[in-house]
Design a protein around this nucleic acid. Structure first.
Ligand code: MN
Ligand code: MN
Ligand code: ZN
Ligand code: ZN
Lengths: 171, 171
DNA sequence: TTCTAATTGAAAATGATTCTCATTACTAGT
DNA sequence: ACTAGTAATGAGAATCATTTTCAATTAGAA
């Protein structure tokens, strides 16, 4: 049904709202080293080989990755990267909204490069599958609520939890 | 504007969608010891003085409380309560949905007795004020999304973040 | 190239939450 | 009310993701 445009990983299947055949990269576009440097500079950070590698690995790898997982991936390529740097850089990128943090329950934080078109997540509590979705209606109503209370919204967290189709059938 | 029906606490102002004059208790109704015992038994847990006290304190105290804060409150009344018990009981209550966990950013988890009528939260990132709101439209659209992907929803997390009116004026 | 603040890695620290385990307290069944 | 069998408790240790420290290194402006 929606298996055709999904990339999965045992316990973390992601379904994009937009069809894609690319199995390894979140974005269809690929980033050159200059692209990477630009992104880092835009955050008012100095360009270092560590940051380039971390950002590149994040971009090429699977979405919804933990700091630990990213650290291990990066380690295999260049062991001159400490995990403090991975955490620090992820934190910085989250602050400048280059990456988005996903805090699901009490699990370790997962990160994804902030996509141009915002999406939210629906997670199967039985198997961990993550479905990404976009819903303009919900977003609009959120703005209405904010306006109603005089708030100026900066961001939001919307996570739906439930049981996916296949887990429903399993029992 | 909406100050008239709010209970606040320095860094945590809550605005209820339903008018209320009660400044100390989340619910208008008060709970007798028997009420408390009933609630505990319904969770298939044994009734102990610790659990009664914890639940009572949670009910009478401010909403959106941390485990630590609750532990300290309870300590003042009866020091025969360990903080392991507070954590354990809160966890149990969360599992049986008697309390709801609020994980805002990376701050310690806050708890509130699950209200009969569900609500979500909007938080001011400048001053920490928390506004509670209900929005049937959003809830309905969430169900639509779930149905669209074949999910059976169990619960959800919706948190709006932004700047409240007074913080907007301060700068 | 030089200078200086930013960055880094290793290790220690932190802090919320969970676990261990010996002791105590419920409560169903008598 | 009594008791056995099990659940619950508190103190402190353990966990574990994340952050901080700090001395050494490096990026990049001048
Ligand atoms: Mn995503
Ligand atoms: Mn609330
Ligand atoms: Zn599933
Ligand atoms: Zn504010």
């Amino acid at each position: 049904m929606f298996e055709h445009n999904s990339r999965h990983n045992n316990n973390d299947e992601t379904v994009l709202p937009i069809p894609s055949n690319n199995e390894t990269s979140y974005f269809d576009e690929s980033w050159t080293e200059d692209d990477l440097k630009q992104i880092i500079r835009k955050m008012n950070l100095k360009v270092t080989p560590q940051r380039i590698l971390i950002l590149q690995t994040l971009h090429e790898g699977r979405v919804h990755i933990t700091a630990q997982e990213l650290y291990e991936k990066v380690q295999k390529i260049n062991s001159d990267v400490g995990f403090a740097t991975v955490y620090r850089f992820l934190k910085g990128m989250a602050e400048s909204r280059v990456v988005t943090e996903l805090r699901m329950g009490s699990m370790p934080t997962r990160y994804e490069l902030t996509p141009k078109k915002h999406h939210d997540h629906m997670t199967c509590t039985a198997c961990g599958k993550i479905v990404e979705f976009q819903n303009k209606n919900i977003e609009d109503h959120q703005e209405k609520v904010a306006k109603q209370y005089g708030f100026k919204l900066t961001h939001h967290v919307l996570e739906l939890y439930g049981i996916c189709t296949s887990c429903q059938m399993k029992k």
